[in-house]
């Protein structure tokens, strides 16, 4: 079995994440898509790590997980704050700032 299957899978997942970020309107879902992107990158890292027999890639995944957790905490807090202000998390309806 070839390694590029893994890379291909992660590329597909990454792209789905990108499409999601660009098309969705709900802030939470956009954020989840960003998490999907991070997750697919983790897959890439693990498969490279497996290919090289090298631990560093997995270490990076570990840190990426930490970052994802931290991002989740802050991101969800921001979403709660904006929901309290606007009663919506629809990014197309939150538009005080333009140009």
């Amino acid at each position: 079995m070839e390694m590029d299957w893994y890379l291909g899978l992660s590329a597909v997942l990454f792209t789905i994440g990108v499409i999601g970020v660009l098309t969705k309107k709900n802030a939470i879902v956009i954020f989840m898509c960003a998490e999907l992107m991070l997750n697919s990158v983790n897959l890439t890292l693990v498969s490279f790590s497996a290919q090289l027999g090298d631990v560093h890639g997995q270490i990076l995944v570990f840190f990426a997980l930490c970052v994802a957790a931290a991002e989740a905490a802050v991101g969800l807090a921001i979403i709660i704050a904006i929901y309290r202000n606007n009663l919506t998390v629809d990014v197309t309806r939150i538009n005080l700032l333009k140009w």
Binding site: V74, A77, I80
Partner: peptide
């Protein structure tokens, strides 16, 4: 930092 920040915001 993330925890403090989340507290601060929410």
């Amino acid at each position: 930092a993330a925890v403090v920040g989340a507290l601060l915001l929410a």
